[in-house]
Nucleic acid binder design. Structure first.
Lengths: 109, 109
DNA sequence: TTTAGATACATCGTAAATCTATGTATATAG
DNA sequence: CTATATACATAGATTTACGATGTATCTAAA
């Protein structure tokens, strides 16, 4: 099922942060993991991904370093900061409250 | 907990449609029900509500009629159309797929 | 009596998030 | 050699919600 982009708004950054929190990751890898781990539901555009990564770094939630892969390609890896972990936990709690409230409304009859 | 407005994007119209599907409702009433049924989580602004109602009506998902209340106040009631019911069912299913996918990402470790 | 707050509808301008499109560049498979 | 995947980046357009503002009535308190 294709998900309207509007539904995604607000939750994309949390998911990116969560993926980086598991292990350092580079941009392209993040889109692949997000696609696989969501059961092929989320196909992240590059025009969405990179600006979010830049914002997260500017806000001090992640930091980056460059590394050359075995294939000789330059990759920009991101790792989560302590501040990022605190922020992630808060955002996950917020998501839980939000999604439970929506469920409550949609379940009502 | 205050929910960032960004999280709301895309799900507000579904919830409004769901409330109207239960019984005909007018604008102010919808904000009250949404607030109560969500456990005081969703406080809908008028600048959000009325444009959405107008769009839903323009799209043929709801229709309106005016009625005077016992207090002598004019109210604009909305009722869901058959097309609105079909659309609501599809959007609820979409929400389920979406929220399960986000849960899957955030649960991963 | 006047004033504040709740009820009731509406629109305008702004901000935020994502998308599409575009650009650059390299590696790999057919 | 050509298409696809990998890899990063930005600009402009679209969508959605918000805050501010406007109009108007009813009710309760000061």
């Amino acid at each position: 099922m294709r998900i309207r982009k509007e539904l995604l708004k607000g939750s994309t950054a949390i998911m990116i942060l969560k993926i980086i929190s598991k292990e350092d990751a580079y941009g392209y890898q993040i889109t692949q993991e997000l696609y696989a781990d969501s059961g092929e539901t989320f196909k992240l555009n590059e025009g969405t991904l990179y600006p979010i990564l830049h914002t997260l770094e500017k806000d001090g939630l992640i930091k980056s370093y460059s590394k050359i892969s075995e294939q000789g390609r330059l990759r920009k890896y991101y790792s989560i900061t302590p501040l990022g972990r605190v922020n992630l936990a808060a955002q996950i709690e917020e998501w839980r409250v939000f999604s439970r409230a929506v469920d409550a409304i949609l379940k009502e009859n």
